[in-house]
Amino acid sequence: MECGVSVRTNIAQFLATGVLILIAQLSLADEAVVLVTSENSSFEDISSLDIRKAYLGISVTIDGQIIRPIRRGDDERLDRVFLQSVMAMSHRSYERRLLSLVLKFGTPRPAEVDERDDLMKLLFDRPNSISYMWKSDAESDPRVKTIKVLWQET
């Protein structure tokens, strides 16, 4: 009798562990980074090349409006994923490129926020600002408009 209970307990633990692993994998598979702007922005799309240009301080205009990039200093992992998957650069290489443009031409570096509230304020205060978010965060905030998926966990 005790032996039967033990076996059932082990099976239950095994199944529970399996379910947890499955949930974790589904969660990871669903993890994505998206490009966002405020719901008031007029543009609906931007090419990957223009995103890279904007984040390297090169002026990008869509429908006569200058695109204003915002970096996420408040989420180190998100920033790293963005730099690796979109900019194809390490953090160090990216920072040096920005420094080089400041040094050579006084080119302004992208704005950087250290708190989520600052991000939302900048997105709404400055028309046609863009930034990046976890997809789950973007979906839960009706004030932001998702432009495109930048990276998806595979």
């Binding site: 400041v102 040094l103 031409f105 006084g106 080119t107 302004p108």
Partner: peptide, 13 residues
């Protein structure tokens, strides 16, 4: 010391 200033169409270095 490097100082830069940008405002719309104006730039200073």
């Amino acid at each position: 010391f490097l100082y830069t200033y940008n405002n719309n169409r104006f730039r200073f270095v």
